[in-house]
Design a protein around this nucleic acid. Structure first.
Lengths: 298, 298
DNA sequence: CTGAAAGCGCTTACAG
DNA sequence: CTGAAAGCGCTTACAG
């Protein structure tokens, strides 16, 4: 059957066969060279020729053919609740770094207002469009999907009895922050949105961005940071260092988190990993937004 | 060669061949039935049987195989500068509606801080991972990429001599807004961020969200909307109607825009469309945030 | 109404 | 060092 699919005249993209013919070698040789498996199997001269022709023709291998042959798309998805939170950008970056080492591509998908995201990822898996998922700060998969997802998903910021999970040690981070403030001598510490009867000498925010808001409010109230008010954040994103003075904060190791999650995911795709929960400890980063409380305020 | 690729024992997903065997029919019949091309070609009894077995087995066709055979992924990408702007969510929704009719899936990609996005989409095209792109509110493709992108991209909110383009008639929208305010009797109209010597009786904002900010500021200054201050927005997103009073605004027909762009893209994938610029007119929606100016302020 | 077969573009064991 | 061939899982003309 010779039904060639030229979607439109001319646009024909070259195949490895075209490269082979023009370089005067076989298709196998082209594949070997382009996949870096030619070492000691193809002469340097031939390798060069193949590479040159491939470039001349602008050859790129067909993902579909590669996927069909290999049984893997080499695409992993990072699923997050909300793109606007910069911590996820860092997780993505880490995931991409780890993915690149294994020749994987990462796509970021925000569940946003899509309540049906679980069904969508299960479908992507069933049609073999995506090899695996990192579920970041999301609800755990419903039991109906467990079977299909098993071995193809990793949980970040959560703990599941079904999947490899990375659990943030929030408690530790929070207590480190409080300890720090207590050791400086603070006794009236506000946890953001938690009411305390007297005006605080220190505020512990659940997020760096909230802390930024507190900076602004403090400025308006003519309070100096940290002289009049100590502030501690949570996350250690870019803002933390941009604030003036730089923010003391609990650091979420987002980059490392993304890397680790991707490593586990890709490892699990090869040999199924038993589920386990790995606790990720948070660092406490002391910068200039915390100091001794003013004596007259004690 | 019998190198079957069972990524992991057990996980074996069923193929159309499995469905065929179990239903006691051929692979062709399965394909016909599952693609809705069985009308008058396969007996109802057989159709039912195939459908039932497919469901039992949880069969989903392999995207890679389908793509390889068809020469199309049936995936289109909506490229936007920034996910946080809700107008793009509406464009996406429109694009998805139009895509569904033609059996296409839409992926949303934010260029965010990725300066290399053009190269990435060209690569996706070259590897035949994605069939086409809608470039929304972005810089036009560099000339180096024109050749490859031709016939596979549509521009939204811009005009290009190389691609089908949908251009928003911003001027018309703005002048409609100003006319409206003038006809109400306003003479001191502020365009947001444009300084005017005296306090305005009306403000025309470039975006509904800015308008929301003006509402807040007005409230703080004890100015009533619209009695003391008329406000006009731009976009007509969800907020416009949620504001109190509901916002008079220039409406970007985001849903229709997404639909139209996808229609053009998919049509162009079949038969190359010549480039052209289609001007999209904006509606002006009068709600309750504009009224006659207070006489004492004139 | 149904099936056998070709071919999409790759990768990789195998043979030389 | 290199090539011929099989097969991944589909869809679709073609033959009956």
């Amino acid at each position: 059957m010779s039904d060639r699919h030229e979607s439109r005249a001319g646009a024909q993209t070259p195949t490895s066969f075209d490269v082979a013919r023009r370089a005067g070698v076989s298709q196998s040789t082209v594949s070997l060279v382009l996949n870096g498996k030619a070492a000691g199997r193809v002469s340097p001269r031939t390798q060069e020729a193949v590479l040159r022709v491939a470039r001349e023709l602008g050859y790129e291998p067909s993902m579909a053919a590669r996927t069909l042959r290999l049984g893997r798309t080499h695409v992993a998805a990072l699923i997050i609740p909300d793109v606007s939170n910069p911590v996820f950008a860092a997780v993505l970056q880490g995931a991409e770094q780890a993915a690149r080492l294994r020749d994987y591509t990462v796509v970021q998908v925000s569940t946003g207002n899509d309540s049906d995201w679980q069904r969508r990822i299960v479908h992507a898996l069933a049609t073999r469009s995506i090899d695996g998922f990192i579920l970041c700060s999301l609800d755990l998969p419903e039991s109906a999907h467990l079977e299909l997802l098993r071995g193809n998903a990793v949980i970040v910021d959560g703990s599941s009895p079904e999947f490899p999970s990375l659990l943030l040690d929030i408690e530790y981070g929070a207590s480190a922050a409080v300890q720090h403030l207590l050791s400086l001598g603070h006794r009236r510490i506000a946890h953001l949105a938690a009411h305390i009867p007297e005006p605080p000498t220190a505020i512990f925010c659940d997020d760096d961005l909230m802390a930024a808001g507190v900076y602004k409010a403090a400025r308006k109230l003519q309070l100096r940071v940290p002289a009049d008010l100590s502030i501690v954040g949570f996350c250690d994103g870019l803002v933390a260092q941009l604030l003036d003075p730089p923010l003391t904060t609990v650091a979420i190791p987002a980059l490392a988190l993304g890397q680790r999650a991707m490593e586990l995911l890709l490892a699990g795709l090869e040999t199924e990993l038993p589920p386990f929960v790995e606790t990720i400890s948070l660092d406490f980063v002391v910068r200039a937004s915390t100091a001794l409380p003013r004596e007259d305020l004690l």
